[in-house]
Amino acid sequence: DYYKILGIPSGANEDEIKKAYRKMALKYHPDKNKEPNAEEKFKEIAEAYDVLSDPKKRGLYD
């Protein structure tokens, strides 16, 4: 669930989505986080943001 990945409610607005994305992206960026699964988690976060930040894609997802 993209909302769960970003840690936001399904009714989140654009600003909340952007803030959550930035926070999670910094936390899991492969250059900052050396955990083995950090890169995979970072890709999931980027995919979630891509879908939820685009009103058309978000509409299809919801």
Rank of each mutant, 00 (worst) to 15 (best):
D1Y: 01
Y2D: 03
Y3G: 02
Y3D: 01
K4W: 03
K4R: 07
K4F: 07
K4E: 02
I5V: 10
I8H: 00
I8Q: 02
P9S: 07
P9T: 08
S10R: 09
G11D: 05
G11I: 06
G11H: 08
A12E: 02
A12I: 01
N13Q: 06
E14W: 04
E14Q: 07
E16V: 09
E16M: 06
I17N: 00
I17E: 00
I17P: 00
K18G: 13
K18V: 13
K19M: 14
K19R: 07
K19C: 10
A20I: 01
A20F: 00
Y21T: 02
Y21C: 03
R22Q: 15
R22Y: 10
R22N: 12
R22D: 15
K23P: 02
K23F: 07
A25F: 12
A25L: 13
Y28A: 11
Y28F: 12
Y28H: 07
Y28M: 10
H29N: 04
H29Q: 04
P30G: 14
P30R: 12
D31Y: 12
D31M: 10
K32G: 06
K32F: 02
K32I: 02
N33K: 14
N33G: 15
N33E: 12
E35F: 06
N37W: 05
N37P: 09
N37A: 14
A38S: 10
A38V: 11
A38C: 14
E39Y: 08
E39I: 09
E39A: 12
E39L: 15
E40S: 13
K41L: 08
F42C: 08
K43Q: 09
K43H: 15
K43S: 13
E44V: 09
E44Q: 12
E44M: 10
A46S: 14
A46W: 08
A48P: 02
A48T: 01
Y49S: 04
D50P: 01
D50T: 09
D50V: 12
V51Q: 15
V51G: 05
L52E: 01
L52P: 01
S53R: 04
S53I: 10
P55C: 09
K56A: 09
K56Y: 08
K57M: 02
G59F: 01
Y61K: 08
D62V: 08
D62R: 03
